[in-house]
Design a protein around this nucleic acid. Structure first.
Lengths: 362, 362
DNA sequence: CGTTTTTTCTGTAACGTTTCAGAAGTATAG
DNA sequence: CTATACTTCTGAAACGTTACAGAAAAAACG
């Protein structure tokens, strides 16, 4: 019965509700939360007590963000469909690296959803900057992110002027893989890739021919294909003679399906270059199920060196890249950008050939 | 030389910069972005053109959020250290489920970092609600999240009044695992758990005794231990005779280390109950390395049924739970909450015993 | 006791939008 | 030609903070 003269009950309790209840200025309440040294300990106690009593949830973060011009979070643009982010082992290591640096800087990590036909989520993301990772080169979401004019770092994307980029030397890696197989005496190659052409325009599941390659819409895919191509041609193998099978998705099942088709061709390939380890793992099991011995009859090399590469039998020969470091570098670059520094605008990370048991001389 | 009379250059371009440049009201510019039907197409074109020319990045999302009272994102509180989120296969499936529902609702997923000695990240997270998942029962971050008074869903947490909870029937699952082993004739049990006691208070790596169990600070840990205990005691096995080894972390290496210690005890256990599949996988390889045959000499059962459980030899007997569904349910519940509906406040998901090859009669 | 310094508290102007009632102008109906 | 209804645009009031300059009170100084 004490406070029933409060006829107009403000459903939303704000800093001024608390201030009014105490008969004190709003700035004092604000200070109680943010600048304890600006008011007496006694009053601060009182403010906090009344706030708790009224159920005041503390200063509204959005209002604070508006005032302070910072959101305390970084947006990560990755993959067309958000849930896939959690399936790809290589991507996860990258995300882990990003998360590590952001955590140290006390920044949140906002996974931004968004189909390419609706960029509003990107436009409205409450973030201080973006990391763009492994998006299709032409994805409108990337444009939308850049249009925000926030500090942004590109990772595994085609570099742009004025935007720091971190890329991996995918082309060199692909070259190493190819040269390794060539040095083992292989002459009949095939390639398994994924999402080289957008799914809805891909006519069939037959290996595609060389002309269509130019449609490659993922930067790293282009780099890797380029890296395969050069040593092959140098060895006198026509690029147009190399069948390329384009999977719908980067996973083991698609890799296993691909290898079946490729092994049915004449001449039968003896060396398979896979754009990712997941495809390679699928190719190994697919080949084994079809009765082929790896590596005796068929050499397979992957790309990424994910943890599972060592667990399969035969262990996968592949190109190692430091996924975690990729994430760390991207996060670090963005944090420097946010601090007003200008990071080295272009970082290229090295790769390394790891020879295991899935490749052998012919 | 056209616009050099603009002496005061506003470094920050806002909606009113654009409005001033056009000699038009700010609300008109706002409408150009948000309510195309509220102004003539011709003027809208002009607004957008001038905006582009000035480099206006579009309406500031934070200001918009303040006005509209929504952030368009959901905070996920998970694990003490953010990067670990990307390592645990079970957790990833849960996150995938959460991400799926949020994506459909066009909501971002904010991973909130935060050590328990600093809750500011939680207090300042720009979100419309929280999902709290697998946090230590006493973690101050959970308190901080609840204090925000936003719609919140608890997942694998001790239920609280007024907060919708989604839990898994961990206790029943643990009972099933135990009964399975008992029915195979086992009498000498041991348990491998993780983080039963906070790392810094744990005295040594010896198996801990029964009294300390009450300190269990993870809700699901408590449930599972309880589920192990009951059928054992019912079978006349004293709980205090069951050694429990507490690992530092939920991973294979710790599981492998644990099994070494446990196998050295007298009487040597013939049945190992592992709180998670990762620990169980480690226990299997650890036991094999120590020269024991699984399941002939040692039966091991896990919990979670992660994908890797089928890939190991022998394939792991375990308790299956639908991780993805957990995430979906949590996301769905939160979305309903955000829409002002009240979801069923308490959901309990079922589990299932999956018998594979890591358990056998004694 | 008058000055200066320090402590404690206040008022107000941003921060950049959206919303909404309504003004002004233009088309439609009777 | 007047009354009515649209269209198109405007102005001002929120949204909930924080920063900053300064007022008032208290403490320290000479």
């Amino acid at each position: 019965m004490a406070n029933e003269h409060e006829s107009a009950k403000p459903h939303r309790i704000t800093i001024s509700t608390v201030a009014a209840a105490l008969g004190v200025a709003v700035s004092t309440v604000s200070n109680a939360y943010n600048r304890p040294d600006q008011l007496s300990a006694e009053l601060r106690e009182r403010v906090l007590a009344v706030a708790a009593e009224l159920g005041y949830p503390g200063p509204n973060p959005v209002a604070r963000s508006l005032r302070q011009q910072r959101a305390g979070a970084v947006g990560v643009l990755f993959a067309e469909r958000l849930p896939y982010a959690f399936r790809d082992p290589a991507a996860l290591m990258v995300l882990e690296g990003i998360a590590s640096t952001l955590e140290q800087a006390k920044l949140g990590l906002l996974l931004v959803p968004g189909r390419d036909d609706d960029t509003t989520t990107v436009q409205q993301a409450l973030v201080d900057g973006f990391i763009v990772y492994s998006m299709m080169d032409t994805d409108p979401l990337v444009e939308a992110a850049l249009k925000r004019r926030l500090p942004t770092v590109l990772l595994d994307q085609p570099p742009r002027p004025d935007v720091p980029s971190i890329i991996v030397d995918d082309e060199a890696g692909a070259r190493m893989a190819t040269e390794h197989l060539l040095s083992l005496g292989h002459r009949h190659f095939a390639i398994i890739t994924d999402r080289l052409i957008e799914t809805h325009v891909r006519p069939s599941h037959a290996p595609i021919n060389v002309q269509t390659h130019s449609e490659a819409t993922f930067f790293v895919t282009q780099l890797r294909l380029q890296g395969y191509r050069q040593p092959l041609e140098q060895a006198g193998i026509a690029w147009s003679d190399v069948p390329i099978y384009d999977c719908n998705d980067n996973n083991e099942a698609d890799g296993a399906a691909a290898i079946q088709i490729l092994l049915a061709r004449t001449p039968r390939p003896t060396a398979i270059l896979c754009l990712t380890d997941r495809l390679a793992l699928g190719a190994i099991t697919g080949a084994q199920q079809a009765g082929y011995n790896v590596p005796e009859q068929l050499s397979i090399v992957g790309f990424d060196d994910i943890p599972q590469a060592t667990r399969i039998t035969p262990a996968l020969t592949t190109i190692r890249q430091d996924h975690r470091q990729k994430g760390l570098s991207a996060g670090q670059a963005l944090i420097e950008l946010l601090a007003g520094q200008s990071p080295t605008s272009y970082q290229r990370l090295a790769v390394e050939l790891v020879v295991r048991d899935s490749t052998a001389a012919i």
